[in-house]
């Protein structure tokens, strides 16, 4: 009987994990803005989750557990690619050059504009913002996933939204300039 319930539990777990795939992908994409990398990260997250399924004590916490693994995979990815690209360099480059060629390309649509603005947020702020906005995690859950104090989550979120507001305003079409009426003066 015990074995049966265990089998049922693993089965449910697999089912739930598979259902989380699109959520994980969305967040991984919002962190990396690279479809192939996001896909790899999700694949790696799910395979680690499967391997360590027995570490999950409370199935209720599956979702935040999966996102915690995603965060670890994301950090591992940068650790592995340290020689090739340093995340600080990328961030620095973005700060110094607000318009990369990709940005120029992404100007036309609202969706692209927002993604572009999100991608220019510092990594820590980007992670908090997307977990709260896309997955509706509570601040406490985000603190658990990213291993941060709750206060940091709140302040990062606040700064992220402020920066986002500013950069989206910058991108908005400029207000038409005041047209000076030409009057004939006799």
């Amino acid at each position: 009987m015990k074995i049966l319930s265990l089998i049922c539990r693993t089965r449910d777990l697999r089912k739930q994990m598979e259902q989380s795939r699109s959520k994980l992908y969305r967040v991984a994409y919002s962190w990396s803005h690279d479809a192939a990398l996001a896909d790899d990260l999700v694949q790696e997250t799910l395979s680690r989750a499967l391997k360590n399924a027995d570490q999950l004590r409370d199935p209720e916490l599956l979702n935040s557990w999966l996102f915690r693994i995603l965060n670890n995979c994301w950090h591992d990815h940068f650790r592995q690619h340290r020689v090739m690209e340093d995340i600080d360099d990328v961030e620095d480059y973005r700060c110094v050059n607000p318009t990369t060629p990709e940005d120029m390309h992404a100007r036309n649509q609202i969706v692209d504009r927002v993604r572009d603005a999100v991608s220019r947020l510092p990594l820590g702020q980007r992670q908090v913002l997307t977990l709260v906005d896309l997955e509706e995690f509570s601040y406490a859950e985000v603190a658990g996933i990213l291993a941060l104090p709750a206060g940091t989550v709140m302040s990062r979120l606040c700064r992220a939204r402020r920066a986002l507001k500013d950069s989206l305003q910058e991108l908005a079409p400029p207000q038409p300039a005041q047209i000076t009426q030409i009057r004939r003066v006799k």
Partner: peptide, 15 residues
């Protein structure tokens, strides 16, 4: 702002 962020990632490009 929140709605726009949600909207922007509704259909992320698939690899």
């Amino acid at each position: 702002l929140k709605a726009r962020v949600r909207h922007a990632y509704l259909n992320p490009p698939q690899p």
